[in-house]
Simulated assay, not measured.
Amino acid sequence: GSTPIANEHGTAPGIFMRVERADAGACLIFALPGVPTEMRPMWEQSVAPAILAARGEARVIHHRRIKCFGVGESQLEAMLPDLIRRGREPSVGITVSDATITLRITAAGVDDAECYAAMEPTIAIIRESVATLAYGEEEDELEDVVSRLLVERGQTVAVAEWATGGLVSQALARTAAASTVFAGGVVLSSLTQLQSLLRVPDVLSLSANPNVSAVAMEAAIAVRNMAGADYGIGIAAFPPEPDRPAAHVCISITTPQRTRRLRFGSATHPAIRQARAAKQALNALRLILLSQLGDI
């Protein structure tokens, strides 16, 4: 038979049942009401202690997440020596969201210290294997890392973007140090706007095609000068056929001393095209701030 589990915050009791199995140990079955205010106290007072008693020793589980950007999931997995293997301890899971790859390391132990100690060798292998592809941990996004690097250097950035539709500016504006590091942003949708908003003279002499490197470069230089920033990011338009194998988006990052002209492949799922291009721009600035990026 079953045993009721007391519910001090409602009328529906829980149910506990122990089922003996001939070919394995006993199976413990718990059924609780779904209302969170009722379920949580019942879990803490009855279910969790029963599970711990059945296990014979207290066990805790901890996770750490390492965020990566710059290659595809299969490429990154190939860099990791047997870390994603099923049954490995600590385990390493891999997920992708809007071109950001998250590696989640999971370890179990008798206490927090044992879990974290068990994870450290795996984390060291990951960081050595992927190098600067790993940009942060836990809740870090690329804009958070860029913002911290700019704060450390006492520098600022301004953005003029076309293909990304304001996503880079939005990301930087959301960071904790936005008022300190983000000097301003301009969203473009025509060459005429490049001329009227950023005062780029004779813009049509650059090219009638808005997805060329010259457009990104002039936008970067103009927005940096307009905002008085240390860095200027310029992002040109996507090409007319962005999914062709040779298609790319042009991004330029400029300082008073140097202008970098970069190109990144634009072929990807349409749902993440803008987000990936925005992250490519932020990641390029991150690598420049770390002095790890030349011209592409």
Rank of each mutant, 00 (worst) to 15 (best):
R199M: 14
V212N: 10
S205L: 14
R276S: 04
F30Q: 02
V223N: 07
A219M: 07
L194T: 04
D243W: 02
M39F: 08
I15V: 13
E20N: 15
S266A: 07
A216V: 04
E143M: 06
V215C: 02
P256K: 11
T164N: 03
A246C: 07
G265F: 10
M217V: 15
A284F: 03
G166D: 05
I61D: 08
Q195N: 12
A78L: 13
I233H: 01
A134Y: 01
T164L: 03
G34H: 00
E137L: 10
Q45P: 05
E137V: 11
G234F: 03
E44D: 13
L194C: 05
A26G: 13
I5F: 00
A12G: 05
L32V: 03
T11F: 13
I51V: 10
E20Y: 11
C115P: 04
Y135W: 02
A118N: 11
L293V: 04
H9Y: 14
V92E: 02
P201W: 04
S190L: 01
L204H: 15
E161T: 03
R21W: 10
G232Y: 04
G25Y: 00
G136I: 00
H248N: 15
C68P: 08
S74K: 11
R55G: 06
A236T: 01
A108Q: 14
V212Y: 07
A118F: 11
L285P: 01
N283M: 00
L167K: 11
Q170P: 09
A229M: 05
L282K: 00
F238R: 00
Q45C: 08
P81L: 08
D144G: 01
I29D: 09
L83E: 08
V181H: 04
Q45K: 14
R40C: 12
P33I: 00
P239V: 00
L262Q: 08
E73A: 07
H269N: 15
M226G: 05
E20P: 08
T102M: 03
M217P: 12
Y116L: 14
E38H: 04
